[in-house]
Design a protein around this nucleic acid. Structure first.
Length: 194
DNA sequence: TGAAGGATTTGT
DNA sequence: CAAATCCTTCAC
């Protein structure tokens, strides 16, 4: 029996974020907790952030917070937002080119252990949004800079089936609002906003 | 050293 | 529509 699907080859992420973002739709995000428990979800919504993009944290210059997105592809960029949530990005493109893909929503495969009694929420809404996703997968700043590969706390597995993808503008921004750099699975109930 | 504001979420 | 909540960034 196969325990894991084939992980993404590193070269799949070493491309511009606007190519990687739609390519990640349908892939599986895997989180291994310190307890050893695996949490798995299908990526159903992404956004691209690229050089010259005024909405990007790396728009102006390298800082302590954003330095990981200037590095090589294949690491996690995790930052805190509004003092209480975290957002998970996948660093893409080549070293020296700030570039990342925000993972906005995943469809969880099953309810995490211990959540049965805590909340009566619909499974497909538990990770519908970048902040909710990090909350349920227990992703915080400790995972910033983590290499996304098998055996690490986070990794990504290749898409098994084709899905219908919709491309639109990004959400929640004050700048770069017209760039069509958001992708999501058509008619998917786990997407943050349809 | 301080102030402004944010790639969000939730409840009113 | 506003609060929650705190870190990052930029200005002085």
């Amino acid at each position: 029996m196969t325990l894991f699907n084939q992980i993404l080859e590193p070269s799949a992420l070493a491309r511009p974020s606007t190519e990687v973002a739609p390519a990640l739709i349908g892939c599986t995000l895997v989180r291994q907790l310190p307890t050893g428990q695996f949490l798995r979800g299908t990526i159903v919504e992404t956004e691209a952030y690229a050089p010259g993009d005024p909405a990007f944290h790396a728009y102006r210059r390298m800082t302590g917070r954003n330095q990981v997105v200037f590095g090589a592809a294949g690491r996690a960029y995790v930052y805190q937002i509004y003092g209480m949530y975290y957002c998970l990005n996948v660093v893409t493109d080549c070293e020296g080119i700030p570039s990342a893909v925000l993972i906005r929503a995943v469809q969880l495969e099953c309810l995490p252990i211990g959540m049965e009694t805590s909340r009566k929420q619909k499974l497909h809404r538990l990770a519908a949004g970048p902040g909710k996703l990090c909350r349920v997968l227990q992703i915080d700043r400790n995972l910033n800079g983590t290499v996304l590969e098998l055996g690490q706390p986070l990794w990504i597995e290749r898409r098994q089936q084709e899905v219908a993808i919709v491309q639109t503008t990004r959400i929640g921004l004050s700048q770069g609002v017209d760039l069509p750099w958001r992708w999501y699975v058509q008619d998917c109930p786990a997407v943050s906003k349809h």
